[in-house]
Simulated scan of single mutants.
Amino acid sequence: MKAVIQRVSEASVKVDEKTAGEIGNGLLLLIGIDETDEKTDAEWLVQKILNLRIFGDAEGKLNLSVTDIAGEILCISQFTLIADYKKGNRPSFIKAAKPEHAVPLFEYFKEEISKSGLKTESGIFGADMKVSLLNDGPVTIVMDSKTKM
């Protein structure tokens, strides 16, 4: 499972010109699910994300997590994070989980994030989404549950 984590001042997602989710200060999470991903991958990512110290403290040092600042989280499913681009110029998405596997795992990921008590919103799985954000910093981090060791 891959995540692109962006510290944002605000973010929103629209589907068919209607707002599906929006947040203020917090994290925008782009989540890619591989065909081999399991609940343990989601659990590991959730714990790393919720405890990732990428928000400034009183001295401006990155010492606070999204939980520490009572931030908000916007989760967006993004199968293109699983792209294989090694051969040719057109990326292959064959290793991205099929919806019957990806949807329940994405829902599980969101449930685990929301257990933090933080405002958690999301886009609509599989929809053509328009994501807007105001990246703060900018701070952007990429995580892959397959490289956790």
Rank of each mutant, 00 (worst) to 15 (best):
C75P: 02
A102Y: 08
W44A: 09
D41P: 08
G88K: 15
K48Y: 02
Q78Y: 09
E112A: 14
E111W: 12
R90F: 01
L45N: 00
G26Y: 04
E107A: 15
L64S: 12
M143E: 08
M1H: 05
V131G: 01
V46G: 00
W44P: 05
S114V: 04
V142N: 14
G60N: 01
N25A: 08
E35R: 13
G21T: 09
N135I: 01
A58I: 15
I113C: 06
K61D: 10
A127M: 06
E100D: 15
K14L: 11
F109H: 09
F106Y: 13
T147S: 14
I124Q: 13
E17W: 14
V46N: 07
I113W: 04
I141R: 01
K2D: 06
T40G: 11
P138E: 02
Q6W: 10
G126F: 11
G71S: 08
G32I: 06
L29C: 02
S122M: 05
S116M: 11
V15L: 07
K39D: 03
F93H: 07
L45D: 02
T67C: 12
A11Q: 10
L74D: 07
L28F: 03
T19P: 09
K130I: 08
D144A: 08
F79A: 13
Q78G: 09
K18C: 14
T36N: 14
D41C: 10
A20W: 07
D128N: 14
H101M: 15
S114Y: 06
V103F: 01
D136F: 10
A96F: 03
L52A: 00
L30V: 03
